[in-house]
Structure formats: C-alpha cells, structure tokens
Design a protein around this nucleic acid. Structure first.
Lengths: 136, 136
DNA sequence: GGACATAGATACCTGGAGGTAACCATGCCA
DNA sequence: TGGCATGGTTACCTCCAGGTATCTATGTCC
C-alpha cells in the first residue's frame, strides 16, 4: 500500500466542534431558516408579512413558518412587529445581524444555480431508486 | 399599516422545491457530509484512509463515518478502494464530481472564518441558556 | 494466551425535526 | 347565518438521523 496515504498528519487541529465552519452549518441545520432569510432579503427592506412568506416558500407549513421565525427572532436574525389591527397583521424584518447572513447564503445559492449540472449529476438515493431498473 | 408591505408579488416563482438552491442544501442535510468532503480535500489528492478521517473529525463516530461515506459513494462524491491487506485497509478519494462540491464548501467555511463575530453574535438557544443569568 | 489496531457490520435506542389537522378570535361580506 | 382571511397555537404522530455498544476477522507484539 502507498506510503503517501499512510502518514496523514492531523492537519485540522482547530477543526474543533465549536469552530466557525462548524457553527455556520447550524444555520442550515433547520430546514427553512436559510430560505426564510433569503425570502426576506428578496423583499424591500428585508420585511415581509407572514402570509407573503408562506406563499413565497412552496412546501412550508404555517406551523413550521412561525416556529422557524420565532427561533430566528430568538437568535437575533429577525425582528417581529405586530400591528394591532384586525384581522391581525404581523411582519418580520431582517435585523442587521440577519442581514449579514444573507451573503453566505447567496454565495451558496449562486453557486448552486451556476452548477446545477453538478447537482443533477448527484445520484441521490431518491433518484437511484427511481432510476435503478428504469433503463438497466 | 404601510401599503408597501401589503403588496408583495410572488417574486420567486422558480423557488420551487427542486430548484438548485434548495437541492444544494441537501449536502448539508446530513451532518457530516460537508466536513468529510472538506477533510478529504485537505489531503493530498483528496484521498484518506478511514482511520485518518476518523481522527480528523472530532466527534464523529465510526458508524456515522462509514455510513456517511457509503452514502457519499452512492451519490458519486467519493470512490472507495479496498486493499486486500491484513489488517484491512480502505481509503476514500474524492471523485471529480465530489471535487466540484469543495468550492461552495470552502466559500461557506471561508465566510464563516472571516465572520466569526457574526456567529458569536447569534443567540443560540444553547448560549441563551448558559448566559441568561450569568451577567444579568 | 490476551491486548491492540485495522475496517466494518449490526442491533438497539432516542430525541426532536418536521408534518398534519383542528381550533381560536375577529371583522367583513354575501 | 355562514364562509373567508388574518396569524397563530396546540395536540398529535411519524420517521429517521445520529449515537452507543457489541461483534466479526486477522496478524503482530508482549
């Protein structure tokens, strides 16, 4: 066996559990956070009402939307504003902090759009199952 | 209430469930995939033995490592090579496809390192609990 | 003989993410 | 009177990612 493979020094000493790279992943840990961040940023002033968001994110449920938004509020990513009107109206706005997280998101999304072919090339389990006997 | 907020057109029509941005998120859906991708890339030729990876990723368990690696193999991100030696030796190499996914990762990780302060500013539930009464 | 290292397989368990559906309060409108 | 829309909340359920522990096989070394 090749020596070159044998000896591999523990290069990433600082790849600890609380390093920045690992922590940024937490943003993507909850399914909808990044998408809400994006959806908000896509609006004027990073503000949008609940219903608008609900309709902007195909597939999200009312519950998951509010739940995620509340978590994001607790994290300091968005601020919530309630209008005492009736029927009730609520909107959410990106905080300055929340705004900062838009950049890495767009970085990622941008790459994804430019590299859709790579994503297509990925043999997802799903795709695997569906394709398996299809042409074999 | 401000009109500007009321009328918000469904701007992201193509923000469908299978759009590129959404699909790229799947890479981060499984906890270790991105980190393994990075760890492999950090080696010469994107190749590393199981044990090396195990030690490179603090916190990962043997099971999760193999499991994730096998999933990645099925997705076409890495290739597995077994040496008929004893004790057994196995190594994994980034495929060309796998290599392509390193870029967005590093994009993200790079941002994270440069913006550690933003990550610190995030009021994680964790941090919230630990800090709550600490200095208040 | 027994420990260690190699790379796994396998059984087992659990938390919680994420989803569904029903309910609430209210005013408008037909 | 009943339906609709507003933004939630709540109860409930399921699934599986992710983790633990134990077992395999084999050769070397003490």
């Amino acid at each position: 066996m090749p020596d070159s493979i044998m000896m591999a020094p523990p290069a990433d000493d600082e790849w600890r559990e609380d390093c920045a790279p690992r922590r940024v992943l937490e943003i993507f840990a909850s399914k909808w956070t990044s998408m809400i961040l994006h959806a908000l940023d896509a609006r004027h002033g990073g503000t949008a009402r609940t219903g608008v968001l609900l309709r902007s994110l195909p597939g999200i449920s009312k519950k998951m939307l509010t739940q995620t938004l509340r978590d994001m509020e607790a994290s300091g990513l968005v601020s919530r504003r309630v209008y005492g009107t009736v029927p009730p109206a609520v909107d959410y706005t990106l905080t300055p902090l929340g705004h900062r997280f838009v950049e890495p998101l767009e970085l990622l999304y941008g790459w994804a759009r430019r590299n859709a072919d790579a994503l297509d090339a990925l043999t997802t389990q799903r795709t695997l199952r569906e394709t398996s006997k299809t042409h074999g």
